[in-house]
Design a protein around this nucleic acid. Structure first.
Lengths: 247, 247
DNA sequence: CGCGGCTTTGATCCTTGTCAACTACAGTGG
DNA sequence: CCACTGTAGTTGACAAGGATCAAAGCCGCG
């Protein structure tokens, strides 16, 4: 069950053979739980494992001199945290659990083994890092050019779209607290609250206990100008990628 | 001379053999000039070449519904524009020349050939995409958490640091116009002008004709909280990367 | 029942955007 | 060489988005 998550995600873009599946099954060395708020990897470390989020929500973040936290990426189930550290020696940011998380650790050697023995998997992993990069660019557009209310709507749309891609988020609940959302949106929790109030008034979201749930997904998408293009879902890879995998 | 640029950049992180150098020499199919303001690759395209900036400054950008342009990355001499398109089928953003540029086109097949015949080059290319990603994260921090004046100082520091890494920018002139800087900083040209005025008052920059030159590099670094850590210059690669290259 | 951490709310201030007019300058054609 | 034109940079008045500060309410949990 554990690896179905990765298989499901990677299988979206390449067709995995039974051997690939077997490789994925042997990938995980061990799993462990991390409580919400705790760090998984810290800046400056040179981790020897790649971490995979199995359950819960984690984030990449950087601390600023003034003590505030900038969240520069969300890590949802099926996301690999630090594939890049396989090459780059040192983390230039932190990774932390936002909710209680179940995390799998994968030795670097297995990643190398995996990419050298299966071209499908190599291409699929490369694809996933490129999508991460595309998401970063879209966040950049949001922070630079969208007002807080549209940006908030956009982020909620993205989270739900990404959760759906791994078979979650059916309940349309955004799995983040106010402080966490605010850190990701680059606004204060106080202002986020005001923004959420206007989105509620418009009937786009509703409160469910302490969480936010999306009430009108289409309306929210329009309001946030959300175009899932940048997530590169269900997209044909380049002809060259296809060629690499068959040659 | 053309490839010295790439060799110089990649050689910063891996030691290139004479064979690697020879490979780099055969890389470029042809070069062409692009006038400032013209697009090099457009969103939605499926380019069959990788583009390398030889001279000039280019950028990645996205257009917004309201007609404004968000610059989500700067491409300086030695930067590869669209390595990721080797895998991803379709561009999700545009690439445009900010100044008159000389651009080299490299067929995708040569990239594959290069990475499959030299592990040093494969690792070096991977490294360069990871640095691009790290820069994106830092821009995200800037847009989300730094005031326009600090952000401006930070960007100018980054540009000079990156230019120096390829042996340019000795004159400490920022090779961008106001509109272009503003689009990269997520502010209006009007406000940028105010910001530049304050930086001038502090003696951090000076006007040189229509361009800005850095007068006090250390002061500007302090003011913008610029820490070049994220550029991963002169940094030892991970032990695993070293192992991959020797095995 | 009471404590501690989230939310909520209001008042005020700061940063940045908008609008609009004005200036400097490079390039063009006469 | 000069007037003409378009583009890029400048300036000031004003508006709006969002931060900050402070206090009050709410909720979950021991």
């Amino acid at each position: 069950m554990i690896d179905n998550l990765l298989a499901r995600k990677l299988g979206q873009v390449v067709s995995l053979s039974t051997q690939d599946m077997a490789l994925l099954d042997r990938l995980i060395e061990r799993t462990h739980d991390v409580a919400g708020g705790e760090d998984i990897i810290e800046q400056g470390q040179e981790p020897r494992f790649v971490h995979l989020v199995l359950e819960g929500v984690a984030c990449r973040y950087k601390m600023l001199p003034n003590g505030s936290r900038a969240i520069v990426g969300l890590l949802l189930p099926g996301d690999l945290c630090d594939l890049h550290i396989t090459i780059l020696g040192r983390m230039d940011h932190n990774i932390s659990a936002l909710s209680d998380c179940r995390i799998a650790t994968i030795p670097h050697e297995k990643i190398i083994e995996m990419t050298s023995s299966s071209r499908q998997l190599a291409v699929a992993l490369w694809w996933s890092t490129l999508v991460d990069e595309a998401i970063l660019r879209e966040w950049l557009v949001g922070l630079g050019r969208r007002r807080a209310d549209r940006r908030t709507a956009h982020l909620m749309c993205e989270i739900l779209a990404r959760l759906e891609a791994v078979g979650q988020g059916r309940d349309r609940v955004v799995p983040l607290g106010h402080q966490q959302m605010a850190d990701a949106l680059g606004i204060t929790p106080v202002h986020l609250h005001r923004v959420l109030a206007t989105l509620k008034t418009r009937g786009l979201i509703v409160q469910q206990g302490r969480r936010i749930a999306v009430a009108d997904a289409d309306g929210l998408r329009d309001y946030g100008h959300f175009d899932p293009d940048y997530l590169h879902r269900d997209e044909r890879l380049s002809p060259l990628a296809e060629w690499v995998m068959t040659a």
